[in-house]
Amino acid sequence: NRMHLVCPMSMSPYVDPRKSGHSIWLEFSMSFTPAVREVVEFAKRIPGFRDLSQHDQVSLLKAGTFEVLVVRFASLFDAKERTVTFLSGKKYSVEALRTMGAGDLLNSMFDFSQKLMALNLTEEEMSLFTAVVLVSADRSGIENVNSVEALQETLIRALRSLVLKNHPNEAATFTKLLLKLPDLRSLNNMHSEQLLAFKVHP
């Protein structure tokens, strides 16, 4: 039984069937850990993030890391070429990934990436939007919701004025960006379901 890890945060979707489940997880973990560390470093630089309690910083990062990674790695999903680039730099076609078991999540990732790229955000806008994405993550584990909400409001206000300044003739850009937040939440839910369904046999 061949197994596949259809996630661009791994080096390759092919899994060596001779390896133990534990070593497969270990290798996968080693491949996505640098990206997660970058998300944490990014979070530390968000003004106000370090003022949240340690518990709330961890909770937001736990809930929001996947959503941040989706935004940061949107360009790995090339809707024109219909390919996904994995960490090794190798591209895999949608058709190939489908035969490995990729389903609705892959379609939704392409759809999201294409719409986000179409907004042509500057690096500064993208960074501020990513900060908004992180502080807008699921709040179920948050202790001090008021502090997180205040931080979210400040960041959204800053994003709004930046986007309006840069795109004065495209008033819809800011609204389209905010509408990406529920899209990301739904991608996160689909991804969680896939993770929970993924079984590694020892």
């Binding site: 850990t33 944490v40 530390k44 340690q54 736990k62 890391t65």
Partner: peptide, 27 residues
């Protein structure tokens, strides 16, 4: 495992990456 983040060991990676931050704050 009912929590996908724990399943991936995400919390551990996050805590370790944040650690320097908390040490900075204590100094």
């Amino acid at each position: 495992v009912s929590d996908p983040a724990s399943n991936l060991g995400l919390e551990d990676i996050i805590r370790k990456a944040l650690m320097g931050n908390f040490e900075d704050k204590q100094e």
